[in-house]
């Protein structure tokens, strides 16, 4: 089948910085605008093992996904009612997890390494987001910022159970504890969700170095004000995190939908596509 080139429909930019406290940047980002893919990982563990884990995550995912949609389109639905993209993301993230876990077990230097993950695959006027840990996906639509992922963290569990309020959470000392990570165990529980994408939407993938340092209101204001200049918007967000202290590595990926990107064979393969022409 034909592979759609998304680069005309979606603009993507990245910005990553080690911040003002850390010597290493353990975050990794990868975008493939032709393929409609954005991946962000925040590594953790031993001195540069965190970089290794997050680097493995983005590289392995980036290459494995390229082949996954060669024979079947992401939007096709399986017998069990699930989209193919969902099945692929769970499978590929699972294999990436195993690869990182194996590396961590095999090399003593990498013992205990792991990484968070947030990734978006654009397809058929929709997005599929897969995430593990506390890296986030936000969406700006009509100047309103909405968080589309729920952190897999102790703090989020405490908020959900009503132990503490989101307001109190800002003062918690337990911000840094995630409950899921890639490479930590042999298997991983990947959360996948799908959302409709509209022209004008701006998606923000970020590591906790951004949302711990910059309030959501401020993120929203920055994205709204600079929506016409995505590279500057990304730089500005990172700069804001650093101006507020830059206590952690900070990475952002911004993706703006410029025009609709329907699947080519949405109406039943190329024949259906032709038929729709002549109607």
């Amino acid at each position: 089948m034909e592979i759609i080139d998304f680069s005309n429909a979606i603009e993507m930019v990245t910005c990553t910085d080690s911040g003002r406290v850390r010597a290493h940047n353990e975050d990794s980002v990868l975008v493939n605008p032709q393929f409609g893919l954005a991946v962000l990982a925040d590594g953790m563990g031993g001195y540069n093992a965190g970089e290794v884990a997050s680097g493995m995550a983005t590289t392995v995912l980036g290459s494995e996904l390229l082949t996954a949609f060669k024979n079947r389109s992401p939007h096709e639905v399986n017998a069990n009612g699930q989209t193919w993209v969902r099945e692929v993301l769970i499978d590929v993230v699972g294999r990436t997890n195993a690869a990182i876990h194996t590396a961590a077990q095999t090399h003593s230097k990498f013992t205990g390494m792991g990484t968070t993950l947030v990734m978006v695959q654009f397809f058929d006027n929709r997005i599929a987001v897969a995430h593990v840990g506390d890296s986030r996906l936000y969406r700006l639509r009509d100047n309103t910022l909405k968080r589309l992922t729920r952190d897999h963290s102790l703090l989020q569990e405490q908020i959900d159970s009503g132990m503490i309020t989101p307001e109190q959470a800002r003062y918690s000392m337990n911000k840094n504890l995630v409950t899921r990570g890639l490479g930590v165990e042999m298997t991983v529980d990947t959360e996948v969700n799908e959302y409709e994408a509209l022209p004008g939407d701006i998606y923000l993938l970020c590591s906790d170095g951004l949302n711990d340092m910059v309030e959501d209101d401020e993120i929203a204001a920055t994205m709204s004000a600079l929506s016409s200049n995505l590279p500057m918007c990304a730089t500005q967000l990172v700069q804001k995190a650093n101006d507020n202290g830059g206590r952690d590595n900070v990475s952002v990926i911004l993706a703006r939908i410029k025009e609709p990107f329907p699947a080519l064979n949405a109406s039943g393969g190329w024949k259906g596509h032709l038929r729709s022409w002549f109607k």
Partner: peptide
């Protein structure tokens, strides 16, 4: 530490 699998890809932009 040499890792063949993955050069950390993070050229600083800011």
């Amino acid at each position: 530490v040499h890792v063949s699998a993955a050069p950390p890809q993070a050229p600083p932009v800011a």
